[in-house]
Nucleic acid binder design. Structure first.
Length: 300
DNA sequence: AGCGGTCAAGTTGAT
DNA sequence: ATCAACTTGACCGCT
């Protein structure tokens, strides 16, 4: 069975996540700051619960949780401890209710921290802050029972081989709360599946195969070959990424995402797998539901 | 109420 | 040397 995943936000459904900025938080009093953060974090825990309800009610099997679900959480000056905010215990309890709901409905939850998290960096401080961010993600993942924290390989610094060596070294030293959830994804500028598969096999961190990125940044392997190799890295239900290019494959830059998925971009070799496919499309839940219909018609 | 400037962070590659 | 592009709006503050 294919399980389709929705990424972070909704196009039409009235479910919104709130955020704030470090600059604003640091411009107000400590009491006001904690009140503001508590309001936003509780709002986001509630919104997550409603997002999962929407997914459960609409046959969407997975939901990617935005990294800003606890905004500014690990900022050096504006960061905070959720449990110490006003009503912090209730906020944590609400996240745990999200986890209970997800388990009850068989929904999968995932994280995809943004590009500032770089484990291959030559700068020890960047790596340290990245690990702090992973700790935050792992903490929330524990509450909501997310089994994937997916990152890219980061920069190459003119020497891919050394960078991948640093990446593998950092991964090996991670706390199991992080390491047991961590995954690596091929990107569209630096690291191909062929670059990352050896790191996956060496560290036990699964490969999230993004077939769109692979078409933008090929490595000589076919989608079939890479699918097979990526599947072998998973010790749980595999998770892959799918999107369609805004301007077609023929002309212009292929990176920007389309509103919807062209069913022709769904690889045939994925169709009979037990697999989560996260749908990276700007029309969000509308695109997931449309693809779901197309796949159902296709097989039935 | 509406609009515009702004938002923590890293890296690459275009200018 | 500088800066947009990644994700992509949503926020606050001013009118």
């Amino acid at each position: 069975m294919i399980r389709l995943g929705l990424c972070c936000i909704f196009r039409n459904a009235p479910i919104k996540f709130r955020r704030t900025t470090a600059r604003y938080l640091l411009s107000i009093s400590k009491a006001k700051r904690e009140e503001h953060l508590a309001t936003i974090c509780m709002h986001n825990a509630d919104a997550l619960y409603r997002a999962l309800q929407f997914c459960g009610a609409n046959g969407i099997g997975a939901f990617r949780i935005n990294s800003q679900i606890l905004p500014v959480k690990t900022h050096p000056e504006a960061g905070y401890d959720l449990g110490k905010l006003p009503g912090g215990d209730r906020i944590i309890a609400r996240f745990k209710q999200c986890g209970a709901f997800a388990r009850e409905k068989g929904l999968r939850t995932t994280f995809h921290p943004d590009q500032f998290l770089v484990l291959s960096s030559t700068d020890a401080d960047v790596v340290k802050r990245s690990i702090a961010d992973l700790e935050y993600h792992a903490m929330v993942a524990g509450w909501v029972t997310a089994d994937v924290i997916n990152i890219h390989g980061g920069g190459a610094y003119g020497d891919k081989k050394s960078a991948l060596g640093r990446l593998a070294g950092v991964i090996r030293g991670l706390d199991p709360e992080i390491g047991s959830r961590l995954t690596l994804e091929n990107d569209d500028r630096v690291y191909t599946p062929a670059d990352l598969l050896p790191v996956s096999m060496e560290t036990g961190v699964p490969l999230v195969y993004d077939v769109h990125h692979h078409r933008c940044l090929p490595d000589g392997s076919s989608a079939e070959q890479t699918t097979e190799a990526a599947l072998a890295t998973w010790n749980r239900e595999p998770l892959f990424h799918l999107s369609s290019p805004l301007n077609g494959w023929e002309k212009g830059p292929c990176r920007p995402h389309h509103d919807f998925i062209d069913p022709k971009d769904f690889p045939d070799c994925w169709k009979d797998l037990d697999l989560t496919v996260e749908v990276e499309a700007k029309a969000k839940e509308l695109a997931v539901l449309r693809l779901k219909n197309a796949l159902t018609r296709d097989s039935g």
